[in-house]
């Protein structure tokens, strides 16, 4: 079972969705959660803090989730950070692009709390977290 104290960054430009994801994480026992409102904000927070996990939207102003993911994978200190995409983008090209860029999971909105839990656990298992 994953360490419930792990610190998670939730990235989404819609405050409602950030609150929903945060509450779902809390429900699963993860209370160490911070929020960022776009990819750029997330990168700033990631570089100045120590995070164990990122849950990110795709379509955001300034820096979108895919660009952010690419920059995380290109950064020597962040490259191994697990990133779960939670997005409304539902085209096959999107899913393929996210996987190729190194996303650890892909949840399409609207999603259920069971789906989020399942995908999180899958990543934890795979990475031995």
């Amino acid at each position: 079972m994953a360490n419930k104290d792990m610190s998670i960054l939730v990235v989404d430009d819609f405050p409602t969705m950030r609150r929903i994801v945060r509450s779902l994480l809390k429900e699963l026992g993860f209370t160490n959660v911070e929020e960022a409102e776009d990819g750029q904000d997330a990168l700033n927070k990631l570089s100045s803090g120590s995070f164990d996990f990122v849950v990110s939207d795709w379509n955001m102003p300034n820096l979108d989730g895919l660009e952010m993911l690419k920059q995380i994978r290109a950064d020597s200190t962040l490259k191994d950070l697990p990133v779960l995409m939670v997005t409304a983008e539902a085209k096959k090209e999107n899913i393929i692009a996210a996987a190729q860029a190194g996303a650890n999971g892909y949840v399409v909105k609207p999603f259920t709390s069971a789906t989020l839990e399942e995908k999180l656990n899958k990543i934890f298992d795979k990475l031995g977290m």
């Binding site: 819609f14 929903i20 779902l24 609207p110």
Partner: peptide, 11 residues
């Protein structure tokens, strides 16, 4: 929780 999840329409 169900009420909360229903708010995902806003996004």
């Amino acid at each position: 929780l169900e009420i909360m999840m229903a708010q995902d329409f806003q996004d």
